[in-house]
Design a protein around this nucleic acid. Structure first.
Lengths: 156, 156
DNA sequence: GGAATATGGTTGAATAGTCAACCGTTACTC
DNA sequence: GAGTAACGGTTGACTATTCAACCATATTCC
């Protein structure tokens, strides 16, 4: 029942602004890089997660959580990728409600192509603009946030 | 003509992953907070920029750059906000191509409401999960990226 | 073992965003 | 000062995302 608002200090405000604008700039730039090659970042992430999954497959809902998309959104995107011939749906033996997604050979090939483009974009847009220490600090802070949120989500 | 790809180290990879997932989680959570009150983060940012602009007005293209949206997208969003009665378009005297946007009194009132919600969300989702030092480091890194990108953009 | 509830995924309509073409205005250039 | 290029913003068609309702299967609990 708190109704006093604790506003941000000038410092905090500046950091928050930089965060907001920075993440947008980075997302836009990376997306642009991939769009030239016929994908977007959100799709790339899906392909990438699939390629690293044990067995090369992931349940729809697990994948949705990994890439932070709604199940509905993933359904639509998966359909799109399936039409492109990059991924494939499979029924799950143990749970007949379930669906698993995997890369097709073609999908894997596309991903390998894209990966080289994408990695160099990530370097150019983010890593090369920071010292190793600065980037490590960024990674550290974001890791803390992610871990903390993941825990909190659990007990809703 | 470089064609050897410098992949990310394990450390770098981990940081990058955390960044990607973290930014998504944060964006989703903040958006959810505002959605309950009838807006989304991208709209909120527009209102917020307008409220702080000298004279309470901004040119469409300047605003688009500030919030990192395409001019087209801003046109659509502005139309929506205008229909809600939150913002207003004005012709620009000196440049008859130009359009300026400003908050209506109602828009200002809505923003003040939303701001309290939003600030406490930002604290809950981000600030409270980090030490002041960690958050400062995050802000520092993002500031460096933003500044660096802003410079680069200039000479395209 | 059968009703109630929860989970996993899909659907389709409504909303938001992208993309390329466009129009009016302003700025160069010769 | 006429022609051309650049700028600022909008438009409309297309694509992507959200949202709420839904179906089928699993799980819980009495």
């Amino acid at each position: 029942m708190e109704d006093e608002v604790r506003w941000l200090s000038t410092q905090e405000q500046a950091s928050w602004r930089a965060y907001l604008r920075g993440t947008r700039l980075i997302a836009t730039a990376l997306d642009e890089g991939l769009t030239k090659h016929g994908t977007r970042l959100t799709e790339y992430e899906i392909l990438s997660m699939l390629s690293e999954a044990p067995g090369g497959r992931l349940r729809m809902s697990a994948l949705a959580q990994l890439v932070v998309q709604s199940r509905s959104r993933l359904t639509h995107t998966a359909t799109r990728l399936e039409r492109l011939g990059w991924v494939q749906r499979h029924a799950v033996r143990e749970d007949r409600r379930g669906v698993e997604l995997s890369l097709t050979p073609q999908g894997r090939a596309v991903l390998e192509e894209l990966a080289t483009v994408h990695v160099s974009d990530v370097r150019r847009i983010l890593l090369d603009r920071l010292t190793p220490e600065e980037f490590a600090a960024l990674g550290h802070a974001m890791t803390r946030v992610v871990d903390s949120i993941d825990v909190t989500e659990g007990d809703c």
